[in-house]
């Protein structure tokens, strides 16, 4: 399988929009053509060849090495293939991802996976605020697919989440699952203040006791069989996802946010 390597030469002074660098777009292009692709950086357009050393053969897999937090919109609207990033990345990682797999060995900035439609996004480090959340003006956040964050996530994870699965291995910040419309979020660590704030529908699965808003009503402890389907689905994705499978089916179910008539659920495993 052919593989294209883009190695960042030096950390850019300001952010660079890397959204044109996707496996499908670069497939079949010559190194010279790839080097000539212009990337927006502030009010300038920089040729990709000025920022990256280009090696290998474009194809199904694109590898970005030496990445840093100045590289924004990596894998945005990507449609197919695999994008492997070595290092940290900036904001809007995988925004509007249509299909394919993005793996980041470091951390990511704000608004990762916003507007994502399908595919898989795996961040081995931590991510900033608004993971899978809607950008200002949008009514819906992430629309499908799977996001796995091994580290921590910032505030507002899944704000306005419409569909899809977000798995956070570490802690999540304040307002986790706020204004959530549907979908599933699982947090293995702790969550900050007011999880499920203004939540309408969907599921927030927490691994341990948390301080919930007073506007979530306790519906008691139950064995929910669908958690078995969830666990089996995660196991079918990959080992990283499988590690988020809830142990057992007994959870305490809280429904809210009743302050706005919401029927979302926060499930707390024992």
């Amino acid at each position: 399988m052919s593989r294209l390597l883009l190695t960042l030469k030096a950390v850019p002074a300001i952010g660079v929009d890397c959204s044109p660098l996707t496996p499908a777009r670069l497939a079949g292009m010559s190194s010279a053509a790839i080097a000539a692709i212009e990337l927006q950086s502030g009010n300038r357009r920089l040729p990709a060849g000025e920022l990256f050393d280009i090696a290998g053969e474009p194809g199904d897999t694109l590898v970005i090495r030496n990445a840093c937090s100045k590289l924004d919109r990596i894998g945005a609207c990507m449609n197919g293939g695999t994008l492997d990033v070595e290092g940290d990345v900036g904001a809007f990682l995988g925004a509007g991802l249509v299909s394919g797999t993005i793996r980041v060995s470091g951390g990511a900035g704000a608004f990762a996976a916003t507007g994502m439609l399908a595919g898989t996004l795996h961040v081995c480090g931590s991510v900033g605020d608004f993971l899978g959340a809607a950008i200002a003006g949008d009514k819906q956040g992430m629309l499908g697919g799977r996001v796995i964050v091994d580290g921590d996530a910032g505030d507002r994870v899944g704000d306005h989440l419409r569909r899809g699965i977000i798995l956070v291995g570490g802690n999540a910040g304040d307002y986790c699952a706020s204004r959530m419309l549907a979908g599933t979020i699982a947090v293995r660590g702790k969550v900050g203040a007011l999880p499920g704030y203004a939540m309408k529908r969907g599921t927030l699965l927490l691994a341990g006791a948390a301080e919930l808003p007073a506007t979530f009503n306790d519906c008691g402890s139950h064995e929910l069989m669908f958690l078995r389907l969830f666990a089996r689905h995660l196991a079918s994705v990959d080992s990283a996802a499988a590690s988020f499978a809830p142990r057992g089916e007994r959870v305490r179910r809280f429904v809210g946010d009743r302050a706005n008539g919401g029927l979302g659920e926060i499930l707390v495993t024992a």
């Binding site: 499908g144 569909r163 699965i165 549907a182 599933t184 529908r201 599921t203 139950h222 064995e223 929910l224 069989m225 669908f226 389907l229 969830f230 689905h233 079918s236 029927l263 659920e265």
Partner: peptide
């Protein structure tokens, strides 16, 4: 409640013995 896992959508309907 709807749950979409992969390409399969499931419905959870509350009933008197659970779901």
């Amino acid at each position: 409640i709807s749950k979409l896992f992969g390409n399969r959508r499931y419905w959870r309907v509350p009933v008197m013995d659970g779901e």
